[in-house]
Amino acid sequence: MEEFAGFPASDGGYGGRDGDRDGPSSFYVDSDGLQRQIDELASFSDSPAPSVTRVLYSDKDVQARRYIKGIMNQIGLVICEDAIGNIFGRWEGSEAGLGAVATGSHVDAIPFSGKYDGVVGVLGALEAISMLKRSGFQPKRSLEVIMFTSEEPTRFGISCLGRLSLTDHKFKLIISNVINSVWSNCIQIGIVTAIAAPASIKVEFEGNGGHAGAVLMPARNDAGLAAAELALAIEKHVLESGSIDTVGTVGILQLHPGGIPNVRDIDEKRRNNVIDKVHQSAIDISKNCGVVLSEFKIINQDPPALSDKSVITAMEFAAKQLNLEYKLMISRAYHDSLFMARISPMGMIFIPCYKGYSHKPEEYASPEDLANDVKVLAMTMVRLSLQ
Rank of each mutant, 00 (worst) to 15 (best):
R66W: 06
T193N: 01
E95C: 00
G23E: 06
V292L: 10
I201L: 14
R65H: 11
S135T: 10
K277D: 05
H335Q: 12
R383A: 02
G136A: 08
I84C: 03
A233G: 01
A228D: 07
M131T: 14
G290V: 09
G242W: 05
E127T: 00
G19V: 08
L173D: 09
P218N: 08
E127Q: 03
L232N: 12
T103L: 09
Y326S: 07
A42V: 07
I195R: 12
A318T: 12
A42G: 10
G89F: 13
G190W: 09
S51R: 05
V192K: 13
S51L: 06
A318G: 06
V62M: 08
L230R: 04
A196D: 03
N180P: 13
S184W: 06
G356N: 07
I38P: 01
L166P: 08
E152F: 03
A233N: 02
I244S: 12
E295F: 04
L239D: 00
L98R: 15
P24D: 13
G23S: 06
G224K: 06
I299R: 14
C289M: 15
L322E: 07
Q387K: 12
I189P: 03
K375Y: 01
I201N: 04
S165E: 15
S130E: 04
D108E: 06
A5L: 13
E240G: 03
A282G: 08
R270W: 05
K327L: 14
S181M: 09
V250Q: 01
R342D: 13
R66I: 11
G19H: 11
I146F: 09
D373R: 10
P303I: 00
D39F: 04
D369N: 15
G251F: 05
V29Y: 11
I174Y: 07
D267C: 03
E368C: 05
L98Q: 13
K320C: 12
E204C: 12
C353E: 03
L293R: 04
G76S: 01
I349L: 13
E204R: 15
L225T: 10
I283S: 14
E92K: 09
I175Y: 03
A125R: 10
F296W: 14
I283F: 11
R141G: 07
E235D: 10
Q37T: 01
A282R: 13
E151C: 12
G16A: 13
F350V: 09
P50W: 13
W91C: 01
Q387H: 07
K309C: 12
D245V: 02
Y364Q: 07
K69L: 01
N73L: 04
F44I: 02
P261Q: 11
K133P: 06
N185Y: 05
F156A: 08
S142T: 02
V145G: 02
E240H: 05
S176C: 09
A228H: 08
A228V: 13
I312F: 03
R271W: 05
S105E: 05
S165M: 10
V178Q: 02
A305P: 00
A365Q: 11
A9G: 05
A197S: 14
L328R: 15
C186W: 01
P139N: 09
H279K: 15
Y28M: 02
V278C: 14
A102T: 03
G70E: 04
I129A: 00
E368Q: 15
I187A: 06
V101M: 09
Y67F: 14
D302S: 04
L132M: 05
A49S: 11
V292S: 09
C186E: 12
R90V: 14
G207I: 03
E206Q: 15
Y364P: 02
